[in-house]
Computed example of a mutant assay.
Amino acid sequence: MDLRLDAVSVRVDGTDLVRELSLDVGHEQVVGLVGPNGSGKSTALRCVYRALKPTTGSVWIGKDDLQSLSLRRSAQAVAALTQESGSDLDFTVEEIVALGRTPHLRGNEPLSYRERELCRQAMEQLDITHLAGRGVLELSGGERQRVLVARALVQEPRVLVLDEPTNHLDIRHQIELLSLLKGSGLTVLVVLHDLNLAAAACDRLGVLAEGRLVVSGSPPEVLTPALIRDVFGVEATIVPHPLTGDPQLLYTLAPDPGHSPGRPPADSISSSPSSAPERQRKTA
């Protein structure tokens, strides 16, 4: 099931947070949104899991305009892991994971054998089976994050959206999570700050700055020294990973004192081959 953001704009209290964002996420693709803080990445995701309604434009799940679906149907189609995900109630891990089935149940209907197996498998995939009986408030931030990913998988969505899912995770669990997403068979839209992880895990990247899509394409097309300099305000050398060939960024510590990150100079962006209008039409 493909996902499409069609000229989505979000205006809140007179401020444009997202501006005419058009982006396609193909069936079973993993597409990453990257960009400086405040560039509109999380706001765009909120439109996909219906925490926000676009001021203009629309979000499509397959042939369905998301706003035309009931909340129940959209919850069955889209699962989300947000930065605000969590629980103030001390449910057990097993109970939290089982909440992923809520959009598919009616009233107090108990879980079926198949649904209990889904929960078991998700906990096994996320390496949290040993935590099943623990209260979620007892867990570390990384453990809670894995519990919430398991809950999203149990939901059996067609589209999975995740906002900085590697937060709090150690490097092993970051790699395991992103490998799981890549092999999940789901259509995935994910916000990531680590550009090296994004290059390794994503089929395509969309770069945002000031609420606008600067460029989209494959990681090698998008991650260039010029773009990193213009969008993020840092100097980087791009080298291929010795095993996978994925682009990897080596940063210098000294920032450019004359450049404000997130405000790419129009002349430098337009002169980049990977960000030309024709490239955006083909890859956005």
Rank of each mutant, 00 (worst) to 15 (best):
L178S: 00
D170I: 10
R151G: 05
M1P: 03
V234F: 14
V188E: 05
I175W: 13
A152S: 13
V149T: 02
P225L: 01
P264T: 11
R172E: 15
G206Y: 00
E84W: 03
A98D: 05
L178A: 03
E235N: 12
L131D: 10
K53I: 13
L197Y: 05
R229W: 01
G258D: 08
L162I: 03
V48S: 11
V34W: 01
R106H: 15
P261L: 07
L249A: 14
Y251M: 08
L180E: 02
L253S: 12
A122T: 04
L178K: 04
R72F: 04
L177Q: 04
T92C: 00
L126E: 01
P240D: 09
L33I: 06
D13Y: 10
A44W: 04
L197F: 07
R151I: 03
A77N: 06
R172Y: 15
K53Y: 06
S74N: 02
L197A: 12
T55W: 12
E221M: 09
P240V: 07
Q76H: 07
S184M: 02
V231A: 13
S42Q: 10
D170A: 06
G258M: 09
L45R: 11
R172K: 14
P165G: 07
D267P: 00
E115F: 12
P54F: 13
A200K: 14
L205D: 12
L5W: 05
V191P: 03
L66I: 14
V31S: 02
R229Y: 01
N196K: 10
R204Q: 12
R114N: 10
D90L: 03
Q174P: 03
M1G: 11
S58T: 14
L5E: 05
L66E: 03
Q67E: 14
R281N: 07
L69P: 10
V78A: 09
Q121E: 11
Q29L: 00
R4N: 01
T92W: 08
E84M: 08
S87G: 12
K41W: 06
R106I: 11
